[in-house]
Design a protein around this nucleic acid. Structure first.
Lengths: 214, 214
DNA sequence: CCTACCGATCGGTAGG
DNA sequence: CCTACCGATCGGTAGG
């Protein structure tokens, strides 16, 4: 998790971390504040001074924790993928048939996008181009694992006639539809995240045959 | 179309336009170049110098045509909506049943997002937050007209059992899925825009009953 | 539309 | 992690 960051940090920082003091908490606070600001104002629209002020530091101090601004962006996205994978795997671990697991995955992903403090994945979706290619490569492997979770469930649904079309296209369309909710969903709009997830999942699935019909 | 810009432009510019010379061409060239750059690098990642250089001007010259950088962004989005509305209305004007018009609308929108030189609407989708609120208000009315075109066709499909779920949610999910293709679709990927549009529209529609079954 | 320029801001650093 | 600072860049302008 800290592999990429560790390579370019000052020696003093590495010592502090090894000593097990509270340094990691400050780093996590920076990442959290940066995620919120990057989501609200974009990467280029957020200054390192903004991030520092949000955690009560002076303007130069974030560079004690990160070699440069891009590394903060990388840390935000890495944290998003970590949380997203953990949450999605937990959803799938509850078991049930393909339909139930699909519901759980849709609900988990809406949560990652729309719940309070869930700024990490939206930043990854909307600021991806700002991340230098060298950093991108490190995240793509993790993104692929995330996509594979979806692909597995969708392929299962397709095989049993519960979802139409090519499974890969289905995955891209479904994830696109869900991801775009980050731009239009308002929590005070009367629709809960649970209800949104349920209705969306139903929309994507082929209608279930009522028992006793054929 | 030029209403918003005209208010804040230098007097010399207004005179030139009224005289009917080629000034408008230079302005259009700036908007086109800005659209491409904003899409590639984002609004904050693009400098006015970049835009000027792309059309063979010196760094200060775009300000002869636009009062400030935000006004260039506004012009890009305004042009995108103008083109998008014209193209969508043309698609609908071809007539046919609701299913055929839905296909035409999906195809038109994919074109607006994915064809060469179609940078205007992607900029609107991905740089919307960068546009100052006063400018946003002017565009929302046009955006609403665009949404209404989709809502009409989708409501018709829903009423005839060819689309499931709440029509408004269906519109948001479908447009989200289509819009997100701007981030993943590669023209050299072997899938044509036509084929993508056909397969996607089929995915969203409830299965058509085969003739002779019930 | 160009020349020449300015004030402000920003990412980043040295040294403690 | 702070103080004090720098070099570069950027949006924008005056005057022609």
């Amino acid at each position: 998790m800290a592999t990429a960051a560790a390579r370019s940090l000052p020696r003093a920082r590495k010592r502090a971390n090894a000593a097990g003091n509270g340094d990691a908490n400050r780093r996590a606070a920076i990442v959290r504040a940066a995620a919120r600001l990057f989501r609200e104002r974009g990467f280029d629209g957020t200054t390192v001074r903004d991030i520092a002020a949000a955690v009560g530091m002076r303007s130069g101090s974030p560079f004690y924790h990160f070699a440069n601004k891009e590394e903060i962006l990388f840390a935000v996205m890495e944290e998003g993928l970590r949380q997203g994978l953990a949450r999605s795997e937990a959803a799938l671990a509850q078991g049930g048939d393909a339909r139930a697991r699909f519901f759980a995955l849709v609900r988990a992903h809406f949560g990652i996008l729309l719940e309070d403090g869930s700024d990490f994945i939206p930043v990854m979706l909307y600021e991806w181009r700002r991340l230098p290619p060298a950093y991108r490569r490190k995240l793509i492997a993790v993104k692929d694992r995330y996509d594979a979770l979806w692909q597995g469930v969708i392929a299962e649904l397709a095989a049993s006639g519960q979802m139409r079309g090519d499974p890969k296209l289905a995955r891209l369309l479904i994830l696109g539809a869900v991801n775009f909710a980050a731009t239009w969903f308002k929590r005070d709009g009367g629709l809960s995240i649970d209800a949104l997830a349920r209705a969306s999942a139903e929309f994507f699935l082929a209608p279930r045959r009522a028992p006793g019909t054929r």
